[in-house]
Nucleic acid binder design. Structure first.
Lengths: 211, 211, 211, 211
DNA sequence: AATGAATGAGTCTTCATTCAT
DNA sequence: AATGAATGAAGACTCATTCAT
């Protein structure tokens, strides 16, 4: 077995055909991951599902992990779009509404492609996660941090770092667990109640007096 | 590729000598997992690190995942002892104290063997997780559920299931993230503040009026 | 133990290079079978004797038995050519001559590659025998059956099936035993006498009056 | 894997208990051979089916092949009893009857334990066949040879060796093929006709004028 | 650029056999 | 004598990766 190759693609597919090749490879990887899991995702398999020769695969990706990383990247970008926009909007609203937005956004994000999300979170060695992911997390962190800072006078908070960490971790974990393990908790009446509850969790935690 | 072997051990070593063999195998698996990760934990490697022949390994474990499962089992048992006792004690106390206990217990549990815990939670295919784990989770769920039920009149809660889910998921996630990603947040003054904050998060969420 | 892989090859080598690879694998298998027997014919051994990597072997053959089957196939095809032609010719001749042809053909067939034939008949699990073999046997059966049917009036036979079975089984067994266990019986004067005798055996059995 | 050990048992089980142990081992081997085939007959398996420790197995048998050889031996002895007696009796009768006896004996012999016989003849490397087998074959050969010699004046035979060879090989092959591959040919009316036919095959071959 | 044949290190697993108890 | 834990050589097979065409 050869040594671990780098995670980034080999060349930025400039030409049209190349782009299509790269896309089908990433797409094939995602499909295999979802339908058959990480173990079954061998490079040969991926190439064949993508309708591309194994040689070409290695023309664009230095190795298996790089493909997985590309999938993570792509998925993260999609999340990013959902999250970034929503968060920026929320930043302009008062706490109670902003909190609700944050929660809703968390759930929304986890719903982008739950099957893929599950595989990525359950089967992919965290080592393969590219900078991308961190970027999003840090972005969210900063936005929330800044928001809390700006509203500090309305809030009952000592340590902004801790508060930011708690809010984000909590929302992420609840959205994640709800979408993946208790999807029934997100539909109908219960769904509304769940979002209400999580929002209340945040608001009461953050605000000076009772919410 | 070989058929997926079952997760449960092949025979439970009765004689003294074989118990030692089994122990060193499980121990070796844990060490490799922590130091080199799931991928490196091949049966040959495990056997060699355990100072045991590969044949003996297969005498007691049908395959790699069964060994990993044994490690998870062992670790879960250790957690279990910490958690179970603490939770039962907490069950007898008023909410504010109980909440603090819950939080402390969560942090405590994650501190049992953080390195191992990290590997197990980040790299082990969920499929390898044995019944054991679920048992503990369900146990905790029940305890909390019962507690909330018993204190329902003091609380501001509509849906007990949602509340239980939120409390446990939140505490778990925060303890997990804190121990693994922000250990500095758990020491000294900040540490105290962190536990305070999380406790407050729970209490304010649960209780009727201001916390 | 690995799952029993199928007997048929994985892909039929289209390019020049791969055809050579496949050929040397089959050839190597045959050589090992003859020189060292079935047990020694491991896939690694075969690949190494063929001067081919083990990976390539598995690219074309799903497992050991598939290689053996290919050898059987190849040998059977060679036999087939000898037998088919001779039998068809014999079909046009009167009984006494046809019988002698049948016997001679049987001996001839067993002489194609006696060493290989011995191994194949003595050491190869019948399960590894491909469709091919049956085809030849059935072909011969049909030819003889039809021949006897056509000459029924000259013959002293009640049950055509039994007669066909007896003739073929007998010739096969005698040719086989003679070639493999008593080659001396097939040379010079004795050889002639042997063929005469077997022919007489058939003719007297089949014909109405004295032979 | 260790070198090929000898084929003969280690010690003649003199004591009662030893005898039972040896018997159950041979019996277990036979059962496994019949029910699961040669490949599945591992020494550990045999010992466990025999209800004997693997250590004890090696106390009595130097290796796996020795066990198989013992099974062959046992089976051959049983055949031997059937064959020897019948053949000796037949030796005192005129040709036509003797021939019929020979044929009947052949069929009878193959019916002793057809399942075991099939496995032994199809799956056991001929190398494992002990002296025993040869002894029976040679015994039969001698008896027939002597018989033909004694009746030479009634017969139409040049070469006694050839004739003996032909008779025995033919009967063996037909009985074998009939029992194993066409059992339906041995029952009822067809069964009688089959034996008649084979007898006629021999008689006409051997006798001076038409049979 | 694309192709796909070839590679071989490395994994899993079995099983005949030994030997300490 | 019996036991069964331990051994490890050997075999089957995969899959990431290279490279000649």
């Amino acid at each position: 077995m050869a040594r671990k190759p780098p995670l980034s693609p080999r060349k930025s597919a400039s030409q049209e055909r190349s782009r299509r090749t790269v896309d089908s490879l990433v797409e094939a990887t995602a499909r295999i991951l979802v339908k058959e899991g990480y173990e079954k995702a061998s490079t040969n398999r991926i190439a064949s599902v993508a309708g591309v020769s194994i040689g070409s695969l290695y023309q664009y990706f230095p190795g298996k992990d790089s493909l997985v990383a590309a999938v993570v990247d792509r998925h993260t970008s999609e999340l990013s779009q959902v999250v970034r926009g929503a968060l920026v909007k929320a930043a302009a609203r008062p706490i109670k509404l902003a909190a609700r937005d944050l929660v809703a956004t968390g759930v929304e994000a986890h719903r982008v492609d739950p099957d893929l999300h599950r595989v990525l979170s359950e089967q992919i060695p965290k080592a393969s996660r590219p900078r991308n992911v961190l970027a999003v997390e840090e972005g969210a962190y900063m936005l929330v941090h800044i928001y809390l800072e700006a509203h500090q006078d309305e809030l009952d908070i000592d340590d902004l770092d801790i508060a930011t960490f708690i809010c984000l971790t909590t929302v992420e974990a609840l959205a994640h667990a709800a979408v993946l393990h208790h999807p029934e908790m997100l539909t109908g009446e219960t769904g509304k109640r769940f979002v209400d509850d999580v929002t209340r969790l945040l608001v009461r935690y953050l605000c000076r007096d009772k919410g």
